[in-house]
Design a protein around this nucleic acid. Structure first.
Length: 500
RNA sequence: UCCUCGGUAGCUCAGUGGCAGAGCAAUCGGCUGUUAACCGAUCGGUCGUAGGUUCGAAUCCUACCCGGGGAGCCA
């Protein structure tokens, strides 16, 4: 029998084929079973009619439960009523195993429960789609750099010295020594760039920050290109081309997955077609303190209040209706009431927070770093990512080159994603001069001895060079429209979560 | 570390001082095209833990534990 994957069913119209997979869902009537079978490549509805199969096969169909594994044979027919447009008219089926009491139903579940069952949750449709988008992003990243002559090289995961303070590093034993898990491959990337010119690293990084937010993991994946003979402008150009390329590939090649995720792609399309605004830190500060920003925030308060009033009105109406409603309508109303309550909670939190955002923005002082709300406010004015460059040197790392036109500034750049997804890229032109770099180490109370190999890079044929780091999970969250990075990686590691 | 919200059936939740509830799942039955199918029945409880107030506590008070969201920090 011809074994096929569901993704390829269209090539086998009217043929007899065999699928191997798992029961995603099933419905039944007296003489008919509708089995939704998933095989990893997709989902196909398989129709078992009592008079089309043997008695054994019919009895077997009756025993199937969610996630039972099976082989199923039948004819591929086009049917617009079915998911994917094709279904299988079943002639035979073999049960491999009956799964009893699969914990994750197709109904709603809480985050904690789903995280406890992450190993199973990955089988669910939205998670399946998100992982395929993640894969497409990874493929696009490699394609982009490989096509431009970049060499992928790996930075070590164990490091002996804590480069920039130990508070946010994980410590571990390394034989008789203290070792740390890497929080960035960048310094090593610079060494690699001096050997190969254009390189990128792609690996895990670890941060022991006690952050419990939707944007943080303790273990996440970072892509760090490093380019010899690139200045800040070239760095920004590359970062913009890079993100545009990745977004375009995902839009082109994963429309079905984005559809499953119910991602509104209109804003993503602007990222592909429009230039990213470039704003200096100084300009960003001006924007935050401006009259327009204050007005925008006042308008935001009004909009939220209006929306809340509308939602409360709707809730009153449907609560009245609920009394005489039929059962299915009651369920619908209950769901809507839950959604409304969640949205109202969010609005009320926003209304509590907006005065703080407003104060933070309007009282912003040159020299401070942007807070989460400041970043959000800056990106709200655009539909594409924005590049914010030339930050005060005092709030940036020692290795960043200063702006020759203003020594107070570092030639740094951050890319902020739209729709509140925050910083996805951080980068800079690196300090190339040996004596200046030594001076910076001294200013930061860092020992020259620890960085002796790094200083060698400036001693032997130093050149201008730049690079940046992309956070993979934040990128996946943005493209998928997910509100938490925990759904962007198969097994997330975060505060209080080490299993499964 | 701080602020804030929460912990009631396998799951999602309602119940704010007076008999422990609903939907889903599971089990049994019904239904010839279902789309989170539907309909009927059955099963299902250490109300996070410990103490206190009260004639009486899921509900009020105190402490603690666990989790969500946020601040700081950051990709």
């Amino acid at each position: 029998m011809l074994m096929v994957y569901i993704a390829n069913l269209a090539e086998h119209k009217d043929q007899q084929v065999t699928l191997k997979g798992w029961i995603y869902n099933f419905r039944s009537s007296k003489n008919l079973y509708f089995l939704e079978v998933r095989d990893g490549s997709g989902i196909c509805q398989c129709v078992v009619a009592k008079d089309s199969v043997s008695e054994e096969a019919w009895d077997a169909a009756e025993t199937l439960r969610q996630e039972s594994s099976l082989e199923i044979t039948g004819t591929v027919v086009e049917d617009e009523r079915s998911i994917g447009g094709y279904e299988l008219q079943v002639s035979d089926l073999d049960v491999i195993q009956i799964a009893k009491d699969y914990p994750i139903t197709l109904k709603e579940h809480g985050v904690d429960f789903l995280m406890e069952n992450r190993h199973l949750w990955l089988r669910s449709r939205r998670q399946w789609a998100a992982m395929r988008v993640r894969n497409e992003i990874i493929y696009a990243i490699h394609t982009f750099f490989q096509e431009r002559g970049f060499i992928q090289m790996d930075a070590p995961i164990f490091t002996g010295n804590a480069a920039e303070g130990t508070t946010n590093l994980f410590e571990t034993e390394y034989f008789d020594e203290q070792a740390y898990l890497t929080q960035s491959g960048q310094l090593y990337g610079e060494a690699l760039a001096m050997a190969h010119g254009l390189i990128y690293t792609f690996g895990p990084t670890f941060r022991a920050e006690k952050s419990k937010t939707r944007r943080h993991l303790t273990e996440f994946w970072m892509i760090e290109p490093e380019m010899a003979f690139y200045d800040l402008e070239m760095n920004m150009e590359l970062a913009e081309d890079f993100i545009r390329f990745v977004v375009k590939r995902v839009l082109d090649r994963r429309p079905d997955e984005l559809d499953i995720l119910q991602r509104d792609t209109s804003i993503l399309k602007k990222t592909v077609s429009e230039d990213f605004p470039r704003i200096s830190y100084g300009e960003a500060v001006e924007t935050l303190k401006s009259e327009e920003m204050a007005d925008m925030l006042d308008q935001m308060v009004e909009d939220r209040r209006a929306e809340e009033a509308t939602l409360r009105e709707e809730r009153r109406e449907i609560k009245k209706e609920r009394g005489q409603a039929k059962k299915w309508r009651k369920a619908q109303i209950d769901q809507r009431i839950k959604d409304i309550a969640a949205r109202i909670d969010q609005i009320e939190e926003d209304l509590r927070n907006i005065p703080d955002w407003r104060a933070s923005a309007l009282n912003f002082k040159w020299g401070e770093d942007f807070g989460g709300s400041d970043e959000t406010l800056l990106t709200m004015q655009y539909d594409t990512p924005i590049l914010v460059h030339r930050y005060p040197a005092d709030i940036k790392a020692f290795y960043m080159k200063r702006d020759p036109e203003d020594e107070k500034l570092a030639l740094a750049v951050d890319m902020l994603a739209p729709e509140g997804y925050g910083e996805i890229i951080g980068g800079s032109e690196r300090e190339a001069d040996l004596d200046t770099l030594k001076k910076r180490l001294a200013e930061h109370d860092l020992s020259e001895e620890v960085f002796s190999w790094y200083l060698d890079l400036r001693k032997y044929g130093t050149v201008p060079h730049s690079g940046f780091g992309l956070g993979l999970e934040r990128t996946v969250a943005w493209l998928c429209g997910l509100d938490h990075v925990r759904e962007t990686i198969p097994f997330p590691r975060m505060m209080g979560r080490l299993t499964p």
